[in-house]
Design a protein around this nucleic acid. Structure first.
Lengths: 343, 343
DNA sequence: CATGCACGCTCAATCGATTTAGCAACATTG
DNA sequence: CAATGTTGCTAAATCGATTGAGCGTGCATG
């Protein structure tokens, strides 16, 4: 039966509780924040106050508490989107691990908009976040610089920057392995292997460039010359991938490297209406359980989110992370067999 | 070139800026929060202070600001998971719409854990959130009661409660329509239609009950007797759905109503190893673009997230929402054709 | 009986920004 | 020249919780 007993609708403060308990605000404060034994408050008083606090529906005002204390325990994260499993897993795991360390996670989604990324970072700094994790940001260095001036630590995740330590996937290795797999399967199923298509991502994006590098190397290894006009980097949205494919002809059997599940949506939508499906083999960077069931999908490169966040929190906990640190973690290649049965 | 010019590493405050500018903290405060014209500060002073603030990398301390002001502009949301498109879309749209209304959204993910749901709510109240949106909570009324005592408005989303206005889908109608579709397609493809399976969700969960009601009605309409042992409600995780199916035999052609995409993952994983796939037709509550490509999938009931959030923010903006309000919005039925080609 | 100490508490300053009240200087008006 | 108004600012209280310093009481000890 929580309730403030019919008096004002304002939230009760320690002063209200002190008055009701016939005690002092400082006693009430220490009782409610657990330091009362250290301050030699009797358990009789403590119990009385805690009972009253519960009756009044008291909840500490963290605004006031944090203003006075030196630490906020807030750890912020900006994340581009929640529309795929990769970022969903990052956000979820981040919150879980932050809580496990008695930190208060605040995650905010910035829609891949550079301005919003910066504004959100500024907001989190104003909120007294002690650490800011910058995930997949367009311009992480701008944010790192601003945060450094404000005395807030930043760590880059997914996309690296040069002004704060970065934790990311081995995009090169993951893409190379995935490309190898696509080539092998295409050869296996069709005999001949024309150069693969590369679809999705942005040409100034570090991860896209690294994946493209892995893609090239795997072509070289296989003795294939890749054709530059099959490299399409229109951004990450399904619509962009779809649009980039409009008007193209897939006349022969071929393999496609899809750079993110979100681009995959557009690719599949386009292919659905345009190509004989049995003449295509796909591989996709990032993991999605349903995308894995597409029979044309020969494999996915899953980024190791738990490992990435484990490293991230190692940096958070440790004294220092060097701005030049760049930690790359291997991807998990998930080959998919055509016999998986759900066709 | 933000930076505090080599002096202490502490964040600069309005007092620091005032000292540098040879002005007073109150002038600095009003200049930085935009009320300076009203307070008749000269533009000469204002420009000087703003220049210094930029140089020093000043960012307002919202903890202090909000403590003093009456309003925090924070709107909190708790959400169970980020592992599916439905909740991902909710979180994303919520943040977008909150920002458009000059509110500061704080979303936190509670893993379908009732204790965590309550703790997160308590934390958001302590953060002085003015409104709390309780999404898909196990026990929304407990949270609503606590928040009411603390003077914080709550609105339920997705799962209804009795102590705060609720915005949700017409789960009954959506499930009825989806069941009709599954029955039709099963009949069309196989001739005979045995009672459908119902898989996923929790038996005490309002939405699951409503969907089951729609499921029953559609059976009645079609003159089918449904069999209770085909109703499996082991929760929402893929593993639970998988486990619930273990040991069962799907001897004849059949249709399956899957209660959420997340359960769908488990169902599909199980079916993949166990049943002749061409003897199954599925329908799934909630939308997922890749799940939509499964050839056995005859349709999905998409919840209308933009409409739900539009209604939600209507309540947020309006003076009052009645605790007994329960707004149900129609789902969008997305029938899928077997000719969609991606087989 | 004076001294010391443990106990159980209270006082008051403090965190950083906001805001009401008001002051000093100057200009304008009657 | 006095009264009044305008301009451009400052002083100080305030939001709610925290915390170092300190106070009064009771009991044990020498």
């Amino acid at each position: 039966m929580a309730g403030n007993g019919g008096n004002s609708s304002r939230r009760p403060t320690i002063y209200d509780l002190a008055q009701i308990a016939g005690s002092s605000p400082s006693a009430v404060s220490s009782i409610l924040n657990g330091t009362w034994k250290k301050r030699r408050i009797s358990s009789r008083t403590a119990e009385k106050v805690m009972k009253i606090a519960a009756e009044q529906g008291y909840a500490v005002n963290l605004q006031a508490s944090m203003l006075r204390r030196e630490r906020s325990h807030i750890i912020g994260m900006i994340v581009p989107k929640y529309d795929n499993r990769y970022f969903g897993a990052i956000a979820e795991k981040f919150e879980e691990m932050a809580r496990a360390r008695d930190l208060f996670p605040v995650v905010t989604c910035t829609q891949r908009d550079p301005e919003l990324e910066f504004e959100a970072a500024r907001e989190l700094v104003s909120y007294q976040a002690e650490t800011l994790v910058v995930t997949g940001a367009t311009d992480p260095d701008r944010i790192a610089e601003f945060c450094a001036a404000a005395g807030v630590r930043t760590i880059n995740l997914d996309l690296p920057g040069s002004k704060a330590p970065s934790v990311l996937s081995d995009n090169f290795g993951g893409a190379r392995d995935l490309t190898r797999l696509i080539i092998t399967r295409t050869k296996q199923d069709f005999g001949a292997v024309p150069p693969l298509w590369f679809i999705g991502g942005r040409s100034h994006d570090h991860n896209t460039m690294e994946r493209l590098r892995g893609f090239r190397i795997a072509h070289q290894e296989a003795g294939l010359t890749l054709s530059e006009d099959r490299i399409l980097m229109p951004g990450y949205s399904p619509d962009n991938a779809f649009a980039a494919l409009e008007g193209r002809e897939f006349t022969q059997s071929c393999g496609i490297f899809v750079n993110s599940t979100i681009s995959m949506e557009g690719v599949v939508r386009w292919l659905t209406g345009n190509v004989a499906m049995d003449r295509v083999r796909l591989g996709c960077f990032d993991w999605d359980p349903f995308a894995a069931l597409l029979p044309q999908n020969v494999g996915m490169a899953e980024q190791d989110v738990p490992a990435m966040l484990a490293r991230l929190f190692q940096i958070v906990s440790s004294a220092e992370g060097n701005p030049s640190d760049r930690i790359e973690l291997p991807c998990i290649l998930r080959p998919l067999s055509p016999q998986r049965g759900f066709i």
